[in-house]
Nucleic acid binder design. Structure first.
Lengths: 255, 255
DNA sequence: GAGTGGTCTAGACCACGGC
DNA sequence: CCGTGGTCTAGACCACTCG
């Protein structure tokens, strides 16, 4: 009942006013998050049962439950009745394309074949550095690729990754890759994408983009800038996608 | 404990396989939803306290609580500690523009002045009828309007409403309107928008749209088709917005 | 059958808002 | 001060999964 636990601050960064009071389950939530971040339980693995965690943290099972509830709605954990609670992973069919909202007008939203254009290590330009919250000039990895639908290019992605976290990422590594990118990031580099923010605009296809996407110059394209965050609200990927929306649309739900 | 309550189905439409078991709190949730739908409690008003509802439904307070929790996360109810639980309403500054995701590159996302172009009653074209799940030819109301930012047109909206639910909606009524549209819909027609789905594309400005938005013909515009639902998952509004995204962007969060 | 998460209860106490 | 929602507990039972 008393606050035996460290870090009385609730998750989500420093608030405008210190809350001066933090519910127990928020503290538990922070502790579990820390274990996830520290890799005590790996993606796909089960975490200890609710009763076990309750004993470890010296709180009731209901309190642990509420903490896990929130982490589950934030997609950090996945509950499976009768089996246990598991660390969320990109290595699952169902959540494979959690962040790709592009749907074809006709047909299924299945896997899209892809072609990598380049993969280079370089120093971060000012705008990229600012988005990724690193210093201008620090190392980054740039990846460019195309996604196809029925043999037609539909998406041109320009991806920038924080260099420090993606040491061994090379063009060779990508060319032999069959899994989704985020799966690779998770399994090879221990970087799990938690959430993302997107800024969407309509733009006119420039010469290079038009050629790659096989559309006339000046054709309207959807520009989707995405900033992806990992544990601890740290941005690790900034990408800009150009979508040809003549046969696809971007789907969004408002609640 | 025993299922004294009617309608054992959980909310959310017919499932692929009948659940054959419905938690009590889901049944309570359905009952509360029905009261909301039936207008027992009006938008902005408080609903009975948790203990009171617990007595009425002959369940424990915790069970009512869980039902209300879900309705609150679905934005049907709003909890206010120390005061009570209230029916959500569009008549609040904070939730005023819940569905408008357009953000200016610079400056605040404040209110956008607007100008109504027309408001007509007519028979639903096939595509509109299909989206609104009514018969082709049934009455609908069409509203067209412009939204401005710093004296420049930014959004051109083409709105279609199910005629049966918006009987007294006229151009005069709109011209003297100062509140947001959804506020009017709620207070005058008893239609509250609960959730919406959007399909987003990049399109080229056609002659008429280009003129109204004061952009060159062929300029890239964001096309945002929105289908809005009210209680019971019934679609009541279909709109198509054309956004000029040279000084604004569409913001989205992925979780 | 044993172990997991899921539901439900009853009761205690805390934080907040308003009279 | 009281009534509201918010937290926490302890214990019971149910539904699901797997050996």
């Amino acid at each position: 009942m008393s606050s035996v636990l460290p870090s009385p601050e609730p998750a989500g960064g420093p608030a405008a006013v210190a809350p001066s009071f933090s519910p127990l389950y928020q503290q538990i939530k922070a502790l579990i998050t820390r274990s996830l971040q520290g890799g005590e339980w790996k993606p796909g693995e089960p975490i200890p049962s609710e009763t076990e965690l309750a004993q470890r943290f010296k709180v009731s099972q209901g309190t642990v439950r509420k903490a896990i509830d929130e982490l589950a709605t934030e997609n950090l954990l996945v509950r499976r009745q009768g089996k246990g609670t598991f660390v969320a992973t990109h290595a699952e069919e169902k959540v494979q394309f959690r962040f790709l909202r592009l749907i074809p007008d006709e047909g299924e939203a299945g896997n899209m074949p892809r072609r990598f254009l380049d993969c280079r290590r370089l120093r971060a330009p000012a705008d990229v550095a600012k988005a990724l919250e690193i210093k201008s000039g620090e190392p980054v990895v740039q990846v460019r690729r195309l996604l196809y639908f029925r043999d037609r290019p539909v998406v041109l992605d320009d991806i920038w990754l924080v260099g420090a976290q993606f040491k061994g990422l090379t063009a060779e590594r990508l060319s032999e890759l069959r899994a989704p990118l985020y799966r690779l990031f998770e399994s090879e580099f221990g970087v799990r994408m938690i959430r993302a923010e997107e800024k969407i605009r309509a733009v006119a296809a420039s010469g290079a983009s038009a050629q790659l996407l096989e559309v006339p110059e000046g054709a309207p394209l959807l520009s989707v800038e995405r900033l992806s965050y990992t544990y601890g609200n740290r941005p690790v990927e900034w990408r800009r996608g150009l979508y040809d929306t003549t046969t696809h649309f971007y789907r969004n739900e408002l609640n």
